[in-house]
Simulated assay, not measured.
Amino acid sequence: MRLNPFNPNDIRVEDQRGMRFPGGGGGKVGCGTLVIALIAAVIFGVDPGQMIGGLQQVEQQGAPADTGAGDTGGRTAAESCSVNQYSQESCAALASLDRTWQPVFQKAGIAFEQPKLVFYSRAGRSGCGAAQSAMGPFYCPADEGIYLDTSFYDELANRLGAGPGDFARLYVIAHEYGHHIQHLVGLDQQVRSLQQRDRSAANSLQVRMELQADCYAGVWAGLNRDQIDAGDFEEGMKAAAAIGDDTLQQNAGRQVNPESFTHGSSSQRMDALRLGMQSGDESQCDRYFQMS
């Protein structure tokens, strides 16, 4: 995907790479919007049942930890975005997402706030508590931050089988941005309330959230279809298939258990991304979550 040049001063960037945090960052794990909990099971050998259960408990509790807001590791935004290819690409994607979604919110008469992109390496600190590479990229609604250890992209391409294409990586950022959209319209709080009232429906509600975020990622691409390169659609489909719950469970040598899904099957994630890309219409994503 051919992203336009951007001014680093127009986006919100925080850089925690090279910084140390007392107690290793301590605190709670990111707030229920991780790319997928089972990534750690595949890459790091973590028991996915325990990890998913722990994350779901974390999502329901606690005030945000100290975020260290304003920490930049001594780098300017321009320097943070230039650390490596993945940093540059992620900043360019954030700028494009801001430019795409702000007028959509303005047209709808809803206040828009830019999220911040927070780079960290191995361990960091978020408004939701500790940030660790094993989590994968995640969105923290407490500080409206998208947290990213760029080494994840190598894992995505090599271990998870998404391939080396740039659109797979852009899809990750756009998906987390989708959670920011849900936060701005208040959907995330409604879902949390429903999950607390009906724990048995917690996973299915989370799946709807994740599929809608996939759809929003596709809408961003659809609204910028003039920048789409040949093969980008296929790269997106391959990435969505690689991080479906069923595929991750199979690759981890586990029996596929739809009741444990938190992000949706490969087929569902592909369908959601496809819907957004082909329609370029955010209202189409409402089908994944109709709140009363």
Rank of each mutant, 00 (worst) to 15 (best):
N4P: 15
P8I: 07
V13G: 03
E14W: 07
E14C: 03
D15H: 03
R17L: 04
P22K: 08
G23S: 05
V29Q: 11
G32K: 09
I39Q: 10
A41H: 12
F44D: 11
G45Y: 01
Q56A: 04
Q56T: 08
G62W: 00
A77K: 15
S80G: 07
Y86C: 00
R99P: 04
P103L: 12
K107A: 15
G109C: 10
I110K: 14
F112A: 02
E113T: 08
G124L: 02
S126T: 09
G129M: 10
A130Q: 14
S133Q: 13
F138R: 01
Y153S: 06
P164K: 12
D166A: 14
H180W: 11
I181R: 05
H183S: 06
H183F: 09
G186S: 12
V191R: 13
Q195I: 05
Q196Y: 04
S200V: 00
S200F: 04
S200E: 07
R208G: 15
C215E: 10
C215N: 11
N224S: 02
Q227V: 00
Q227K: 13
A230D: 15
I243M: 07
D246N: 13
N251W: 02
N257Q: 15
S260H: 13
S265W: 09
S266G: 15
S267R: 14
Q268Y: 09
L273H: 09
Y288W: 12
M291L: 14
M291T: 13
S292I: 02
